[in-house]
Amino acid sequence: MTEGPTLAPLLEAVDRYFTLMYDNDVSQFDRVFAPTAQLHGIRDAELRILPVRDYRTLLVSTPSPESKDAPRLQEVLLIDVVSPAQALVKVRVRIDVLQYVDYLAYHRINDTWLITAKSFHIERRYEPTGT
């Protein structure tokens, strides 16, 4: 299901996610993540589970990739629109020295596409650049 009226707002939501991952501007956080969202992924050989409020706190306390002039990499790898209210988007995004492949579960809540679950995988680790 990829009708224009459903796909365009979803792509805008994905773009908001990419922007948040680069600038850490948490004033936009509630336009990206649902308040009940959870993040899951393997990091340092352990399953990491983060409630969205903890992820928001992490973003606030971490210098943004933008502030470090880190390269920006973002691409949409797959979009699966299940219905006008549910979709799965697979993306690749670089956040500072880590490159992730994320599965983002979206639901349309109050006419806005929001991430309700994020499953992340660290695909590549770049060497930090000295400035």
Rank of each mutant, 00 (worst) to 15 (best):
L20C: 13
H40D: 06
D25M: 10
P5H: 12
I109V: 08
A13Q: 06
Q86A: 15
D15N: 15
T19R: 07
V89W: 00
V101F: 03
I49H: 06
L77M: 05
L88S: 08
E66M: 09
R94K: 09
R48V: 02
E75H: 01
P51M: 00
T129Y: 02
T2W: 01
L73Q: 12
R72A: 12
R43Y: 03
A34P: 01
T6K: 09
D69P: 03
V89H: 01
T129M: 09
D102M: 04
D15K: 14
T57S: 07
T36Q: 08
E46M: 00
S83T: 13
V26W: 00
D54S: 06
D44Y: 02
V81H: 03
V52M: 05
P9G: 14
R48P: 01
I49E: 13
Y106N: 13
L50H: 10
R125P: 11
V26L: 03
G130I: 04
P9V: 00
W113I: 15
V101L: 08
S64F: 10
S83G: 12
E3C: 09
P84Y: 09
V97A: 09
Q74Y: 08
R16K: 09
H107I: 11
R53C: 02
H40Y: 07
I115E: 05
D102L: 02
V52R: 01
A70I: 05
P9F: 04
V52K: 00
Y126K: 11
T116M: 09
K90T: 11
T62F: 14
T2S: 12
H107N: 15
I79R: 06
R43M: 06
L50M: 13
Y126N: 14
G41Y: 01
R43V: 05
P35L: 02
Y17F: 15
I49R: 10
R72T: 07
T62C: 13
G4D: 12
A45R: 11
I42D: 07
R53Y: 04
Q99A: 12
L50V: 07
Y106R: 12
Y55N: 15
R16L: 05
T2D: 12
D25T: 12
V101K: 08
V101R: 13
D54G: 02
Q28A: 03
P35S: 06
V101I: 10
Y106G: 14
E127L: 15
M21D: 08
E46I: 01
Q99D: 13
D30L: 02
V14S: 12
I42K: 06
V76W: 00
K68E: 14
V32T: 04
I95S: 15
D30M: 05
M21E: 14
V60Y: 03
D69N: 10
E75P: 03
R108E: 13
E46V: 01
V81P: 02
S67G: 09
K118D: 00
L58Q: 07
